[in-house]
Amino acid sequence: MKKQKWFQTLSWLLWCLFCIVSAFTTGYFLTMLFFKTTGFPSELVAFMICAFISLSLLSLEFFVFFFILQHSRQGKKHGWLQDRFFMIASDAMSRIARGEFSVFLNPKDFGEQRELVDSINKMAKDLGSMETLRQDFVSNVSHEIQSPLTSISGYVTLLENDALTPAQRKHYLHIIKSESVRLSKLSSNLLKLSSLDSGVAPLSISQFHLDKQLQNAVILLDPQWSKKNISITADLDKVTVSADEELLSQVWINLLHNAIKFTPEGGAIHIRLATNDGKTVCTIADSGIGISSEDQIHIFERFYKVDKSRDRSLGGNGLGLSLVKKIVELHGGIVSVESEKGKGTNFIVTL
C-alpha cells in the first residue's frame, strides 16, 4: 500500500514537471514566432509576454487534465452504482424466488433505476398478496371439508348403536345425507371455479330468451319459496341475448336461492328485466335481512359468509356469489349489490 502511494506521488510530480516544462517551452517558441512577425520589444516586455503565454498554456493543460479526471471518476462511480444495483436487485429477486415476499428496496437509494426498483417492490407485494390468498384458500377449503366429514363420521359412529329407535336412525341418516350433499356441492363449485379461472372450458355461446330463462329458474326453485310462503313477482321485458345459457342459468339460480334463503317467511322477492342504452339489466330484489355496508365489500370473495353464526342452519359454502361474479364478468358484465341491514337486498346484473 505504501509503495503504491509513493508511486502515485512520484507519477503526479513527474506529470506536473512535464506540464510545466512543456508549457514554458511551447510558450517560448510561440513568443519567438510572434516576435519574428511583429518585431522584438524590450527584454522585460518579452519576458512578461512569454510568461503570460506559458502560464496560460499551463492552466489550459491542468484544466483539461482535471476535466478528464473528473469524468473518469464519475464514470467509475456510475459503473460502481450500477454494479451495486444489479447485485442488490439480484439478491432481492433470489429472496423473492425463495418465497420471501417482504423484500423492499428504497427507490431513493438507486437514482436512475427508481422505476425498476418500484417494479421489483410491486412484484414482491403482489406475490405476497397472492400467497396470502392461497393460504387462506387452502385453509377455507380444509375447514369446509373437515366440518361435514366430522359430522358424517360422528353420526356413522352413532348408527353403530343397535339400541337406536327407527326414528333416531332415520334422523341420523338424514343428517349424513345432507352433509354428503354439502360436500358434493362444495366439490362441484370448486371444480367449476377452477375451470372458469383457467379458461379451459370456453363459453358455449348461443341465442336464447333471457326472460324465459328467469321464469324457468323461478319454477325450478318453487319448492323452496313456496315452503316459506314467499311472494315472487316479476316484471320481465322480452329480451334475447347471446351468451352461455347454462352458465347464466347458474347465475339466476344462485341469486334467487340466496334471496329465498335470507328472506323471512311471508316475505317478497321481485325480479325486473329491462334493456337500457343497449344494456340488459336484471334486478333481483328481496325483503330479507339485508347486508351491512361492511359485508357488502367482501360478499363476492370466495368463502366469505355474511353471518358465520348461521352457516350450519342455512347451508352454503361461500362460493355461490363468487361463481356469479366470475360468470357475469366472463360475459363482459357487472354484478353489484344495494342493501341495507333489515331492509332487504338488490342484486343488479348488467350484461
Rank of each mutant, 00 (worst) to 15 (best):
residue 48 M to A: 14
residue 49 I to G: 01
residue 50 C to N: 08
residue 54 S to A: 11
residue 55 L to A: 05
residue 56 S to D: 03
residue 59 S to G: 09
residue 59 S to H: 06
residue 61 E to M: 15
residue 61 E to Y: 15
residue 61 E to N: 07
residue 62 F to D: 00
residue 62 F to W: 13
residue 62 F to S: 02
residue 64 V to D: 08
residue 65 F to H: 09
residue 67 F to M: 08
residue 70 Q to H: 13
residue 72 S to H: 11
residue 72 S to P: 00
residue 73 R to C: 09
residue 74 Q to N: 15
residue 75 G to S: 15
residue 75 G to C: 05
residue 76 K to N: 04
residue 76 K to P: 00
residue 77 K to T: 04
residue 77 K to F: 08
residue 80 W to I: 05
residue 82 Q to N: 15
residue 82 Q to G: 14
residue 83 D to G: 06
residue 83 D to Q: 14
residue 84 R to F: 06
residue 84 R to V: 05
residue 85 F to I: 03
residue 87 M to K: 15
residue 88 I to V: 15
residue 89 A to F: 03
residue 90 S to C: 05
residue 90 S to I: 01
residue 93 M to F: 07
residue 93 M to E: 14
residue 94 S to I: 05
residue 94 S to F: 06
residue 94 S to A: 13
residue 96 I to A: 02
residue 97 A to G: 04
residue 99 G to K: 03
residue 100 E to A: 11
residue 101 F to G: 06
residue 101 F to T: 06
residue 104 F to H: 09
residue 108 K to M: 08
residue 109 D to M: 09
residue 113 Q to K: 11
residue 114 R to L: 08
residue 115 E to S: 11
residue 116 L to H: 06
residue 117 V to W: 01
residue 117 V to A: 04
residue 119 S to Y: 03
residue 120 I to Y: 01
residue 120 I to F: 03
residue 122 K to Q: 14
residue 124 A to H: 02
residue 124 A to T: 01
residue 127 L to P: 00
residue 129 S to P: 00
residue 130 M to G: 02
residue 130 M to F: 01
residue 130 M to D: 02
residue 130 M to L: 10
residue 132 T to V: 10
residue 138 V to D: 10
residue 139 S to N: 10
residue 140 N to M: 04
residue 141 V to Y: 08
residue 141 V to M: 13
residue 141 V to W: 07
residue 144 E to N: 11
residue 144 E to F: 07
residue 144 E to Y: 08
residue 147 S to F: 09
residue 147 S to V: 12
residue 148 P to S: 13
residue 149 L to V: 12
residue 151 S to H: 03
residue 151 S to F: 01
residue 155 Y to Q: 11
residue 156 V to F: 12
residue 158 L to A: 13
residue 159 L to W: 02
residue 160 E to A: 15
residue 161 N to V: 01
residue 161 N to H: 04
residue 162 D to T: 10
residue 162 D to L: 10
residue 163 A to V: 12
residue 164 L to G: 06
residue 165 T to C: 07
residue 165 T to V: 08
residue 167 A to C: 01
residue 167 A to Y: 10
residue 168 Q to R: 10
residue 169 R to C: 04
residue 169 R to K: 14
residue 171 H to K: 11
residue 171 H to D: 13
residue 174 H to T: 10
residue 174 H to A: 13
residue 175 I to A: 02
